[in-house]
Structure formats: C-alpha cells, structure tokens
C-alpha cells in the first residue's frame, strides 16, 4: 500500500510538473476556459447549468455532459491523460477526454494486466507489466470506449472521447455548469449505467435556454461499485 501511494503521488507530481497536460481530474475537465482558444469572432460566453436526475428524480453523479457546437472548431490537441491500474481497477472508472488526446496506461499494481477494448471508437489491446511503461494510446475518434482486462475480468473502465473540450462530469448533486464561448447545437449526457432508448440522451436547447435538466425515463443498471471496494486474494 505504501508503494502504491508512492506511485499515485508520483503520477500526481508528474501531472503537476506538466501544466496543461494532466487532465485526469474532473476539475481539469470542467475548465474549458483554461484550455480553449481565444476566438477572433468572440461571442459573449454563455453560462450553462445542467442537472441530471434519475427516474426517481435523484441526482446522478459522474455523468458526462457534452456540449456540441453549432460550428465545430478543429484545433490541435497535445493533451496527455492517464488511466491508471490501481488495486486491479481502472482509475478513474470514467475518464473523459477530448478527441485526439493521448492516454497513458500506467500499472501501479505489482502484477500484470492485459487491457483491451472492442469499442468502435477505439479498439486496441495492451499488455501492462510491472515496472514497464507501455506506449500511450491516441484516441482520435469521438465515442465511448469500454475497457476491460483479460486477466482480471472484474476490471471495467470507460473513456469518453468528446468531439471538443466542452464537456464536464456531474458532481454529487448531478450538476454541471460550464461557460461556452460558441453557439451550441445540442447537449448530450451519458453514463455507463443508463438504459435509455439511445446510448446518449440529447437535448437541443432553445435559443436563450441556459438551465437544462435531464431526467432519465428508465431505471439505471444496478450499481456494481462494490467490485471496487473490497478485493479478496484470488488464484494468480
């Protein structure tokens, strides 16, 4: 545990030493102003407030809310994000990144992992060995990437690849607020346990609508966060 904490601290230090590169915390994800470019034809920023509620009107945290621009802006992306392996789990469970971001998959465990994805947005596999850093993986298509480990079948993680940097995760109150410089076409929300008719829910806001609420129609899948709380030793 002591060494694992040292690993975590080490990654945190690397992130702090490389300003602008570490976007693995939810705070970093919400600050689109920090990473956005200054537009020549700048419009007044609009402050959007989004709430996401389940079928019983209870707030849902860790929902990815993405704002899709009316006129998408292409830009270079040299960001690096981290999806770590800690105690045989993906950390974080859900990582949201902008399209084109490189993702490092370090292994803070003292055992090997064999991670993979069959998702359309990015299909890949990578062996992660103790003491060896695998090459970062570029996620250059927007979409949702389901991650697994072929050795530890209970490991499950997600990478949400957004079209732009205008996205955020809901807090424990199911709330997101974001300032957007550009006109937006639509807002989508996604959570891995949603069971709606479409994988993502979409709202097209009215012209001056800034406060929006998503309420799920269907019950969410059972919360299996218990897979991450305790871990018996199993046959190696």
């Amino acid at each position: 545990m002591y060494l694992e904490i040292k690993f975590k601290t080490c990654w945190l230090a690397i992130g702090m030493m490389l300003p602008g590169l570490a976007i693995f915390s939810s705070n970093a994800l919400t600050s689109s102003e920090l990473s956005g470019e200054i537009k020549k034809e700048k419009v007044m920023p609009s402050n959007y407030s989004v709430n996401v509620l389940d079928k019983n009107n209870k707030p849902i945290s860790n929902v990815i809310v993405e704002f899709h621009l009316l006129e998408p802006v292409s830009r270079d992306n040299d960001k690096l994000a981290i999806m770590d392996q800690i105690e045989e789990q993906f950390a974080p469970h859900i990582l949201a990144i902008e399209k084109g971001t490189l993702v490092n998959f370090p292994n803070s465990d003292n055992i090997k992992h064999h991670i993979y994805s069959f998702s359309q947005a990015k299909s890949f596999e990578q062996g992660l060995y103790e003491g060896k850093q695998a090459a970062p993986v570029k996620f250059d298509s927007a979409g949702i990437v389901d991650l697994g480990c072929n050795i530890h079948d209970w490991m499950l993680g997600y990478i949400y690849v957004a079209d732009s940097h205008h996205f955020a995760k809901t807090d424990i109150n199911g709330h997101v607020s974001l300032s957007i410089d550009n006109a937006i076409k639509s807002i989508t929300v996604w959570h891995p346990r949603m069971q709606e008719k479409t994988k993502r829910l979409t709202i097209v806001p009215a012209l001056n609508q800034r406060d929006l609420a998503f309420t799920l129609e269907n019950k969410m899948l059972e919360d299996t966060e218990g897979y991450e709380s305790l871990s018996i030793e199993v046959y190696p």
Binding site: K112, F118, S123, E125, Q126, G127, E130, A134, A135, V137
Partner: peptide, 15 residues
C-alpha cells in the same frame, strides 16, 4: 474474438 490493435510490436514478455 477479433484482432485488436496492439500498441507494441510484439506481445512476447517474460516476467
């Protein structure tokens, strides 16, 4: 089973 993009040229590893 599908062929996935492997980030390393070789899968061979010895621990």
């Amino acid at each position: 089973s599908a062929k996935l993009e492997a980030s390393a040229k070789s899968q061979i590893n010895h621990d």
